[in-house]
Each structure stands twice: as structure tokens, then as C-alpha cells.
Design a binder for these strands. Structure first.
Length: 285
DNA sequence: AAGAATGTTACATG
DNA sequence: ACATGTAACATTCT
């Protein structure tokens, strides 16, 4: 269930495994709905015979540029994974799309919940065009961030999860960034003070960089977990401060972490460090 | 055994 | 138009 750092980890692994330069010789589709914009026939026709030229990322999308001047955008959604395996290896029942590459390897897309999507397009902007800035790829200036925050009147957590506002954050890193910044997830964006916006801006950079450095967050085992290529998992779970740590002490003040639901998502906060109405706790005025 | 799971979107309502 | 809430997608795990 990858967010920006997990997707970045997959992209780096694909580069390291030299996906660029390989030719797609054939395509097998076992779950057609994975293909978001094309029927399997057309997808196979267009993808087969082209060579992967580069592997990029925007937000949570993996972008493969192909030699036929088309782009394959892959979104892993909740349980999508990519793997490079020998062509001869038996297909896992959850592998829904297989790209057969030259050299005898397959790029296989495995996705238990089947939410992941492939887009094959002429222009990646057809897919990424409505996304907000990517805080790692784009220059992520405080000024621009402040402008975007203040021009909306929304609860801060759902706003940060909104990919058209900012591309790449998901449930884990939003909870972590809000804790880092000391902000309650229901705080309204237009009521954030300059210092709070600065803290949040810095916190987003910090948690994403840590996630990337730690090769992603892998909580638990089995299908409900993040794995990069070759089934390798990340280390960021050991650095989480609040996410799925209900009842454990806040690393900053030792209060017990609590769990609430915000925008249909489980949300973890320190009730002491992340107060909704700080002026009440500080004794009024 | 109901509820939750690291995501997105369509639809409804205010 | 904008904000918010709900259901749906599909499967596995707790």
C-alpha cells in the first residue's frame, strides 16, 4: 500500500535492475480491469515491441517511457507490487499483468485486491495532469505551499491526502507529518498560522525523506504489506512515531497515542501534542 | 466473525 | 464551485 517513499523505492529498484533498455516482447493480461484506459487487445498491440527508455515517478505513479513515444503509468493503489522474475517461473494467481521482456525476464504486476491500474497514454499529463505538486520532485517552496493551504477551507488531513492538492502523501505519512508538526488532523487549513504552516512544510519533507532513506514502510507480513522488487521490505516502520501505535507513549511527551477516524481513514495522534483548540488548553484568551 | 487494511473515485448532500 | 460524507472497488487478515 505504497505512498511516495514506497513508490520511489520501487522506481529506484527498477532502475537498479536495469529495466531501462529492455524490450517488451509480449504481454499477458489476466485481469483486464487493471488496464484503466484500454482493452487488453489494444494494450498488447501498443506495448509489445516497444523498449522501456526511462523509469520515473510522479506522486504515487510509476512512469515508464516507451520507445514508441507512449507512456505506461502504473498506480499500485493498495496491494500492487512489481517483480522481475524469470519467464519460466510459474505464475502466482495474483499476478494480473505480465510484461515479457527480452533476456528472459518478466515484469510482473501482482495485486491481491485488484485496485491497481495501468494507463498507456501518449502524454503522461493525461493521467498526472490534475495532480498537485510532488514535494520531492518539484521545487516545494514554503511560499507556494502556504498559498495553496490558505486558499482552501478544509480539514488539514483530508486536504493533505487529496492528490490534487499535493501528490504523494498517504495515510501513514500524513499522520506522521501532522504529529511532527504538532497539528490536529481536523484543524482547518485556512486557520493555520504562519509558524504552523512552516512546521508542516518542514515536517512533510522530513517524513518523506526518512521514508525514502529507509526504503519504505512495511507493516506486518503477507499480502497486506509493502514489498519492493524481489520481496524486499523497508525499514521505515521502525521509525514511525504515531501510525498504528495506539496506546503507546508519544515519543515527545509520553502521552498515550489515540486512534480516531478522519475522512474514513484510521488516524493516529498524540492528544497532548496535537490539540484541535489549543487556546482552551492554554487557559483561554 | 465483523471490521479494518499504506488508495481512489463516483455520487449524494449541504 | 466547494466541502464533506458514503459507498464501491476486491481480497485478506485480525
Amino acid at each position: 500500500m505504497p505512498e511516495l517513499p514506497e513508490v520511489e523505492t520501487v522506481v529506484r529498484d527498477l532502475r537498479r535492475r536495469k529495466l531501462a533498455g529492455r524490450k517488451i516482447e509480449a504481454v499477458r493480461v489476466y485481469w483486464p480491469r487493471t488496464l484503466a484506459n484500454l482493452a487488453p487487445r489494444r494494450f498488447c498491440m501498443l506495448a509489445s515491441g516497444s523498449t522501456v527508455q526511462a523509469v520515473e515517478r510522479y506522486g504515487k505513479f510509476i512512469i515508464l517511457s516507451l520507445s514508441n513515444s507512449r507512456y505506461l503509468l502504473i498506480h499500485l493503489r493498495m496491494t500492487g507490487r512489481l517483480d522481475l522474475k524469470p519467464h519460466a517461473e510459474l505464475r502466482d494467481p495474483h499476478e494480473h499483468v505480465v510484461l515479457c521482456l527480452d533476456g528472459g525476464q518478466d515484469l510482473r504486476f501482482r495485486d491481491t485486491r485488484k485496485f491497481g491500474r495501468f494507463y498507456l497514454v501518449r502524454d503522461p499529463a493525461e493521467v498526472t495532469g490534475k495532480l498537485g505538486p510532488d514535494p520531492v520532485r518539484d521545487p516545494f517552496s514554503l511560499e507556494m505551499f502556504r498559498e495553496r493551504i490558505v486558499s482552501r477551507c478544509r480539514q488539514i488531513k483530508p486536504l493533505l491526502l487529496d492528490q490534487s492538492f499535493l501528490a504523494g502523501l498517504g495515510n501513514i505519512y500524513v499522520d506522521e507529518a501532522l504529529w511532527e508538526a504538532g497539528l490536529h488532523p481536523l484543524k482547518r487549513s485556512d486557520r493555520l498560522k504562519q509558524t504552523e504552516i512552516e512546521k508542516l512544510h518542514r515536517a512533510i519533507g522530513t517524513v518523506l525523506e526518512a521514508g525514502i532513506r529507509n526504503l519504505g514502510t512495511s507493516i506486518g507480513k503477507s499480502a497486506v504489506n509493502f514489498y519492493s522488487l524481489g520481496g524486499r521490505w523497508g525499514q521505515n516502520q521502525d521509525s514511525l512515531n504515531v501510525f498504528r501505535r495506539t496506546g503507546r507513549p508519544c515519543p515527545r511527551c509520553r502521552s498515550r497515542i489515540i486512534r480516531l477516524t478522519v475522512a474514513q481513514r484510521s488516524t493516529h495522534i498524540c492528544p497532548q501534542c496535537q490539540k484541535l483548540r489549543q487556546f482552551l488548553a492554554e487557559g483561554g484568551r
